[in-house]
Amino acid sequence: MASTSASSVQKSFKYDVFLSFRGEDTRKTFVGHLYHALHCRGINTYKDDVKIKKGEVISKELIASIQDSRFYIIVFSKDYASSSWCLDELAKIIECQRLTEHTAYPVFYDVEPTHVRHQSGAVEEAFKKHVGKEAAVRWRGALNEAASLAGWELKKTLNG
């Protein structure tokens, strides 16, 4: 009888990539192009196209999509931290990232990684509306942890 270790059993994922982004900032620009490029290469990518109501609790369907994705691309923008939906997504992504089957990659779109890591600059301004909320400490930790991962910095420039 052959034995199998837990590490040799791989989980099957519904999605290859889950995109986390602030729609108002990047949906029709960078994220739209990124999604198209991934799709053209046959990479099964989850991109939330449903309008999310501000102040609502993250949906069970969205949580399941995060759990059912192998990789995460987190596109941090100046207003990413203003959205409780984005921050709830991020907290779940970081929770899953800690498991060996998941990998998160941050993209810093016209925002400094240190501003995300320490919630300073534009990120501090975006995060202000969450100060005092019960989830704020968890969200700060998730921002810090995600911004500490190796990622890409993209600056908005003319023709760039």
Results as ranks from 00 to 15, higher is better:
21 F>D: 02
156 K>S: 09
59 S>F: 03
11 K>A: 04
69 S>N: 07
13 F>S: 09
55 G>T: 01
53 K>D: 13
104 A>C: 13
5 S>V: 03
45 T>R: 10
107 V>N: 05
127 F>S: 08
154 L>E: 11
47 K>M: 15
47 K>Y: 00
156 K>I: 05
71 F>D: 00
100 T>F: 10
150 A>N: 13
24 E>L: 12
2 A>Y: 02
20 S>W: 01
98 R>H: 08
120 S>H: 04
119 Q>L: 13
22 R>I: 04
37 A>R: 08
3 S>V: 11
88 D>C: 10
155 K>F: 11
112 E>T: 06
40 C>N: 15
27 R>A: 11
158 L>T: 14
67 Q>E: 14
107 V>C: 10
154 L>M: 13
38 L>W: 07
91 A>H: 00
11 K>R: 15
113 P>S: 08
121 G>I: 11
28 K>I: 01
32 G>Y: 07
149 L>P: 01
103 T>G: 00
56 E>T: 13
83 S>G: 11
93 I>H: 04
1 M>Q: 06
20 S>D: 07
116 V>I: 07
96 C>H: 07
88 D>G: 06
150 A>D: 12
11 K>I: 10
48 D>A: 03
18 F>D: 02
152 W>S: 13
37 A>N: 08
60 K>W: 03
131 V>L: 12
78 K>Y: 09
85 W>Y: 13
8 S>E: 15
71 F>I: 12
125 E>Y: 07
23 G>P: 06
15 Y>W: 14
11 K>Q: 13
53 K>R: 15
83 S>P: 02
80 Y>V: 03
58 I>T: 09
9 V>P: 01
120 S>N: 12
146 A>I: 09
153 E>M: 12
69 S>C: 05
56 E>F: 05
78 K>N: 11
76 F>Y: 15
66 I>F: 04
105 Y>A: 01
27 R>L: 01
64 A>G: 00
101 E>Q: 14
108 F>E: 06
117 R>P: 06
7 S>T: 12
63 I>K: 12
134 E>C: 04
138 R>Q: 14
67 Q>C: 10
20 S>Y: 05
6 A>Q: 13
56 E>P: 05
133 K>F: 10
105 Y>P: 04
43 I>K: 07
33 H>L: 10
74 I>S: 05
149 L>W: 09
61 E>W: 05
139 W>P: 01
22 R>L: 10
12 S>I: 15
36 H>M: 10
123 V>F: 10
19 L>E: 01
29 T>G: 14
99 L>E: 15
52 I>D: 04
93 I>G: 03
145 E>P: 04
77 S>A: 01
152 W>D: 04
75 V>E: 02
12 S>Y: 11
16 D>F: 08
117 R>D: 08
136 A>C: 07
69 S>G: 01
93 I>E: 05
15 Y>G: 09
76 F>R: 11
27 R>G: 08
133 K>R: 11
86 C>F: 07
47 K>L: 15
85 W>D: 11
146 A>H: 02
67 Q>P: 01
118 H>P: 03
17 V>Y: 02
94 I>K: 06
136 A>M: 02
105 Y>N: 00
54 K>L: 08
142 A>K: 09
18 F>S: 08
121 G>M: 03
22 R>W: 03
39 H>I: 10
112 E>D: 15
26 T>D: 09
88 D>I: 07
63 I>D: 04
